[in-house]
Structure formats: structure tokens, C-alpha cells
Design a protein around this nucleic acid. Structure first.
Length: 102
DNA sequence: TCTCTAATCCCAC
DNA sequence: GTGGGATTAGAGA
């Protein structure tokens, strides 16, 4: 398949993801290709486009996941810090001064 | 029966 | 190894 034919198919794919049979036959005739070749090209193009989208989606989800884990870590650190302060406050407020008589 | 997807094969680079 | 055309198996209308 020539570069020109591939470019034409890419343009067609940009306009329509699937081809009706008449359109497929017409496209094949315009390009001097077998209709089967055009069908296979579109099938492969759809499959590879989908896997690319999946990879991009995976990257987005992974980034969101990493950000959520980081945020969670910060929140936990904050909570633990508050817990220490609370505990300290409880200690200082509940602890009576030592009686020297004891 | 036809078309599609998903998986895979095969080959040039 | 990777990209891309071709084949195959199975599902759905």
C-alpha cells in the first residue's frame, strides 16, 4: 500500500470510523485497492485506535490514582499529627500536679 | 450469511 | 522489538 493510499484512508478514517459496504467499494475503487483490503485496513485501524485510547485512559487513571494516594498520605499524616496533639492536650489537662505529700 | 471485534500470525524495518 | 497488513475464531444481527 502506497503512502498516498494510506494517507487517503487516514483522512477517511478521520471522517468515518466505519464504512458502509457501498462506501467501502467506492473507496477501494478510488484507491485501486481490493474492497477486502479496505475493510481489513479499517478493522485494524479501529483496533489500534482503541488500544491507543485505552493506553491514554490508563495513563490518566494511573495519574489520578497516584494523586489520590499522595493526598491520602497527606491526610493520614495530618490526622496522626492531630491525634498526637489531642493526646498531648488530654495528658496536660488530665494530669494533676504532683502532690509533694504523696 | 455478513460484518464486527479480539487475538494472533507474519514479515519488513 | 515494533508497526502494520492479513488471517482466524467466535459473537451478533
Amino acid at each position: 500500500m502506497s503512502d498516498g493510499q494510506a494517507r487517503f484512508l487516514e483522512l477517511s478514517f478521520g471522517k468515518e470510523r466505519k464504512l458502509e459496504t457501498p462506501r467501502k467499494v467506492q473507496l477501494a475503487a478510488e484507491l485501486g485497492l481490493d474492497a477486502k483490503q479496505v475493510a481489513v485496513w479499517f478493522q485494524n485501524r479501529r483496533a489500534r485506535h482503541k488500544s491507543k485510547l485505552m493506553e491514554e485512559e490508563f495513563s490518566r487513571l494511573r495519574a489520578a490514582h497516584d494523586a489520590a494516594v499522595l493526598h491520602n498520605c497527606h491526610l493520614e499524616t495530618e490526622v496522626v499529627g492531630q491525634w498526637h496533639h489531642t493526646k498531648l492536650d488530654l495528658c496536660t489537662h488530665t494530669t494533676r500536679p504532683h502532690n509533694s505529700d504523696d
